[in-house]
Design a protein around this nucleic acid. Structure first.
Length: 768
RNA sequence: GGUCGCAUAGCUCAGUUGGUAGAGCACCGCGUUCACAUCGCGGUUGUCACAGGUUCGAGUCCUGUUGCGACCACCA
């Protein structure tokens, strides 16, 4: 094969996509090889667009997969896409509304159909972007969390957990999003600190002319009050315990109770107890056997028979304002103070989250967490960096029941059927539920299916085993489970990692992955978190367009120092591009010198400099290998840089110009070819392109560096001698530059170098 | 309030078992006869946040302080 002349300039656009297409078929697992090495790709949202955080996580995973694939492993990088319940439904309904479609006029099934249509049309954008980045993914194995097989596995898991008593339905306080009109889990809340007002409201004591003042930031919930609580040791209020107060604008009176929860220092020392709208009040109410009265409906409007007419149906924020005005006018406001407090917001909707008393489905996470804690404590699952173990364990040990039902349409519909008298049948399909109902004498025609769907993370939690075929015992499941490593960001540890561990242990009786590599968060060059509102978002697509995918990958790997956020600017990528240009030019030079790259036979290395280079190469290969296995991509890329620049170009190639012979050229070609193999996982496009252009052979994807092709014939003393020579060379140059070129120091050093025995001395005469 | 992390050159950061403080960028000087100016050669730049301690020896280990950050919890 005649190698084409390389272009004078490195232009990644000329070949990156072409290389990707021509090598795609090599990305598949190969079970004639072994051992298995598996990475679960965290499935991006179907609505996702590649952001720079994605670029980082996929780059790291691709480096690992390419490295282990080169090393002869049977690699599976399991791809897929997540249906992303709330996020997707939001995106699609917004688009439909923009098209003038009235969402409310659609039936549930019609809306679901619309979302599927949207998914088919726009759901693969991110896959194209992953290809641009060079992800070596076996695409045809991709799974979707709502494909038929996945859905039936989800149903099976739900039914199993229900029958084991680990899923239950209950009326509890949950985080309610009044905009999306669904419950959300604790994790889907963002607490924001805000300055608010603490109002002191006067409640009249029954059969007395006296008042007590309660302090609250939520006056509108007063119609749901069931008591006023004071601390039992509070001398100011002790005489009030057992008396009753009247709630303004109603004819209800409520008792004054004593409870240790009350903080004497805070507010007025009198706490209004509203069990239906506050988690702590709910607990107090339960301790004292008090009812919970809901006064806010699911849309966030005041709605209850206890709410006075002037507020009925009013949105709660407006109701608060009206009420405060009225209380002020009526002299019932004893004062107010500004306080800073944290307010919960829904991270999807951005609205204030209300604790609301509703019927929901819960998972008994506490029980599932037991084993999930043990496997991490025991070290069966390791975290990199290790500090994340604490985060994981801390959360797991304090885990609360997980509310998994969502009042939206896009997701896995909960397989529960209700009879008119409130019996619940949880079965894998309607027919089984109907048969069970009939055993109780309930006609199947009276059964109504639960309309709630499951939290997206419920299905994501099953990703490690359902993608491989569970509940069937497929060969893939046997071969690739447990997986090797999970690569993810720390923000996903609770959402996903913890839940995968719980579900996998429960259903597979085996850990889902051995390692968890927690990568950094990417910030802008000023260290600010990237966000659309700040306008500081760096689009990886733009970076790849300007500098090439290889440059972006190399940059991200280079900056992946464990435990440290990445401050990314365009300049970093530019520097990487410059380095890749250096590789390109080195290749051009070797090509120009007529260096041969393709010879496969083993070579005996002769000469000190050649042996030195080969020894450096061996060390380099071993170091990078260790770096990748230790997840130290920062070390690996630094080593790649310094080997190519300092060792290969600045010394070896420079001496080659003075000392050109067939041996040297042969070694240069082999070493450069080996360098390309070692660097390939990090910068796959340029290395594969050069390998082809220089006639090194087939793609580097399946063949890693080979240790035994070059055999050194000299001792480590020889290596040390050349190291010393290099250092002296530097000293001599330095002495010359420092303006004392005629000085003794430079002359002495030069003489020493020129008189160096053997080839080194000859080389020296050409350099200094 | 609890937990964790960070602090090293003007900037961004390395510093792998405790052993003479490093790289890139920026800056300065020199250099385009046979890869590369997207480059090469050379140079300047430090109270390693502060205070103690352990040690023959501390950027590194221990204790405390300050500053910054993240996460969790709570908030009338």
């Amino acid at each position: 094969m005649v190698a084409p002349q390389l272009d004078t300039t490195y232009d990644p656009k000329q070949f990156e996509q072409q290389i990707y297409c021509s090598t795609q078929s090599l990305f598949y697992p190969d079970d004639t090889k072994g051992p298995a090495y598996t990475i679960l790709m965290p499935p991006p949202n179907v609505t996702g667009r590649l952001h720079v955080g994605h670029a980082l996580t996929y780059t790291i995973q691709d480096i690992l997969i390419r490295y282990y694939r080169q090393s002869g492993c049977n690699t599976l990088w399991q791809p897929g896409v997540d249906h992303a319940g709330i996020a997707t439904q939001l995106v699609v309904t917004k688009e439909l509304e923009a098209e003038g479609i009235d969402i409310k006029s659609l039936t549930r099934d019609e809306l679901i159909d619309k979302i599927w249509e949207w998914k088919e049309k726009s759901g693969s954008t991110i896959v194209e972007q992953q290809k641009t980045l060079g992800c070596s993914v076996p695409w045809s194995l991709s799974r979707f969390t709502m494909d038929d097989r996945f859905s039936s596995a989800v149903t099976k898991v739900f039914v199993t957990l229900y029958k084991e008593g680990l899923i239950f339905r209950d009326k509890r306080l949950v985080n309610w999003d009044t905009k999306l009109k669904t419950a959300i889990s604790d994790l889907e809340i963002q607490n924001r600190e805000e300055v608010g007002t603490l109002w002191h409201i006067r409640y009249k004591i029954a059969n007395s002319d006296e008042y007590v003042a309660v302090a609250t930031t939520r006056p509108e919930t007063m119609f749901g009050d069931v008591a006023v609580a004071v601390h039992p040791d509070d001398s100011r209020h002790q005489h009030l315990i057992g008396l009753h107060v009247a709630i303004p604008y109603t004819d209800r009176t409520i008792p004054i109770i004593a409870d240790n929860y009350v903080d004497i220092e805070k507010g007025t020392g009198c706490l209004k107890v509203t069990p239906a709208h506050d988690y702590n009040d709910f607990a107090i109410g339960r301790r004292h056997g008090l009812d919970a009265i809901s006064v806010i409906d699911k849309d966030g409007h005041m709605a209850c028979k206890n709410v006075p007419d002037f507020l009925k149906g009013v949105y709660l924020k407006k109701a608060r304002k009206i009420l405060i005005e009225k209380l002020t006018g009526d002299g019932l406001l004893a004062g107010d103070e500004k306080i800073t407090h944290t307010i919960p917001y829904g991270d999807r909707s951005g609205t204030v989250i209300e604790p609301l008393l509703t019927d929901q489905w819960f998972i008994d996470a506490k029980t599932l967490a037991q084993e999930a804690i043990e496997v991490v404590e025991r070290g069966d699952i390791k975290f990199y960096p290790e500090k994340w173990v604490n985060t994981y364990l801390e959360w797991m040990r304090n885990i609360e029941p997980w509310c998994v039902s969502r009042q939206i349409v896009w997701g896995h519909q909960i397989p529960a059927w209700y009879s008119p008298d409130g019996k619940i049948f949880v079965e894998e399909d309607e027919e089984t539920a109907a048969v069970r109902a009939e055993e109780y004498g309930i006609s199947r025609t009276h059964l109504i299916r639960e309309t709630d769907v499951l939290d997206t993370w419920f299905s994501s939690a099953l990703w490690p085993f359902v993608t491989l075929g569970w509940p069937e015992e497929t060969p893939a499941l046997r071969m690739y489970y447990s997986t090797s490593v999970l690569v993810t960001g720390f923000d996903i540890i609770f959402f996903w990692v913890a839940r995968m561990v719980m579900m996998s242990l429960h259903f597979m009786k085996e850990i889902p992955f051995r390692d968890v590599y927690v990568h950094a968060l990417i910030r802008d060059s000023e260290g600010q978190k990237m966000s659309k509102s700040k306008g500081n978002v760096i689009n990886p697509q733009d970076l790849m367009e300007e500098y090439g995918a290889d440059a972006l990958r190399f940059t991200l790997a280079f900056m992946s120092v464990p435990g440290r956020d990445i401050k990314l600017g365009k300049d970093n990528v530019k520097i990487s591009r410059n380095f890749i240009t250096k590789i390109w030019n080195a290749a051009r030079f070797l090509q120009f010198k007529g260096v041969q790259f393709c010879a496969d036979e083993r070579v005996e290395v002769s000469g000190k400099i050649n042996n030195w280079l080969v020894a450096k190469l061996q060390k380099f290969r071993e170091t990078v290998s260790r770096d990748v296995r230790d997840y130290r991509f920062d070390y690996a890329t630094r080593n790649i840089q310094s080997f190519l620049r300092d060792t290969f170009c600045d010394f070896y190639v420079e001496t080659m110009k003075l000392h050109e012979d067939e041996d040297t050229k042969a070694i240069a070609g082999k070493v450069f070819a080996e360098f390309l193999r070692i660097a390939h996982p990090f910068i796959p496009f340029v290395t594969d392109y050069l390998a082809q252009a220089l006639g090194i052979g087939d793609s580097l994807i399946l063949r890693g560096p080979e240790s035994d092709i070059l055999r050194t014939t000299s001792s480590s003393d020889d290596e040390a001698e050349v190291d010393q020579f290099v250092e002296l060379l530097h000293n001599a140059r330095s002495a010359k530059q420092s303006g004392e070129g005629d000085g003794d120091e430079y002359r002495t050093l030069r003489e020493k170098l020129h008189n160096w025995p053997g080839e080194l001395g000859r080389v020296a005469t050409g350099i200094v």
